[in-house]
Simulated scan of single mutants.
Amino acid sequence: MGYHHFAVDDIEPTPDRPSVQRSISDAAGLDNAAVNVYEVAPGDDIPLAYHYHDDQEELFYVLSGTLAVETPEGTYEVDENEVFVVEPDSPQRAHNPESATESVKTIVIGAPAVDDVHPYDPE
């Protein structure tokens, strides 16, 4: 059996990211899901720019603030205590707009935990 118990604030942020990323999956040694907590200041993106995944599903659960998710269909506003799900092959860019007055804190889960990301050019 294996169990992990820790405070998210005790996880060192991942270096060289445009927003604060704390990898729960790395701290717990998870292999099947990528689980991260992001703290996104106004004007910052969640680490990846506009992109899509071949196989990975993504779930954004907003803990505080309002997350903007840009898609080819338009931009969604995801408020506190709301969830936004992105299916494979669906381009998106999650960010906190420059016009925001507060940071956004969100849990992002991607499964399976694969590196299948591709840039997307909306032009």
Rank of each mutant, 00 (worst) to 15 (best):
H95N: 08
D10I: 07
V40M: 07
A41M: 10
S99A: 14
P119L: 09
H5T: 11
H4Y: 14
V40G: 05
N96V: 00
E87V: 02
Q92E: 12
P112M: 07
A7R: 07
D55E: 15
S99R: 06
N96T: 04
H118E: 12
S23D: 15
S25C: 00
V117E: 13
D116M: 02
A28F: 00
A111P: 13
L63Y: 01
R17A: 09
D79E: 15
N81R: 08
V83I: 11
L30N: 07
D89H: 06
D54E: 12
T71L: 02
P72I: 03
E57F: 13
P119Q: 04
Y61T: 06
Y61S: 07
R22K: 13
L59T: 08
H53I: 05
I109G: 00
S90I: 04
E39H: 03
A33G: 03
D115S: 05
E123W: 05
V62G: 04
A111D: 15
L59H: 09
V86L: 06
E87D: 13
A100Q: 11
P15D: 03
N96K: 02
R22V: 00
V78W: 00
A28H: 00
Y61P: 00
Y3P: 09
F84T: 01
L63N: 05
L63G: 03
A68P: 15
I107W: 07
L48F: 10
A111Y: 12
E73W: 02
G2A: 11
V83M: 10
L48S: 08
R22Q: 03
V83S: 10
A28K: 00
E58D: 09
D89R: 01
H51V: 10
E82G: 08
K105L: 12
Y3Q: 07
G2D: 10
E77Q: 12
L63Q: 12
S25V: 00
G43R: 03
Q92F: 14
V62W: 13
R17P: 01
Y52P: 09
Q56F: 01
Q21H: 05
H5P: 10
G110N: 04
V20R: 08
V62K: 11
D9T: 15
Y76A: 15
H53A: 10
F60I: 09
V37Q: 13
E12S: 04
V104P: 00
V20W: 06
L48V: 07
V69M: 03
F6Q: 04
E87A: 11
E70T: 07
P88L: 02
I109N: 02
E82L: 05
P72Q: 05
N96S: 06
V108Y: 04
A34H: 02
A33R: 01
S19G: 08
T71W: 00
P91H: 04
E80V: 02
E70I: 01
S23G: 10
G110E: 14
D26H: 03
E77V: 06
Q56Y: 01
V78D: 01
S64L: 04
I109S: 08
D16Q: 06
H53T: 07
H95S: 13
V104W: 00
G29L: 01
H95K: 09
V8C: 09
V85T: 09
P72N: 02
R17L: 12
T14V: 15
Y3K: 08
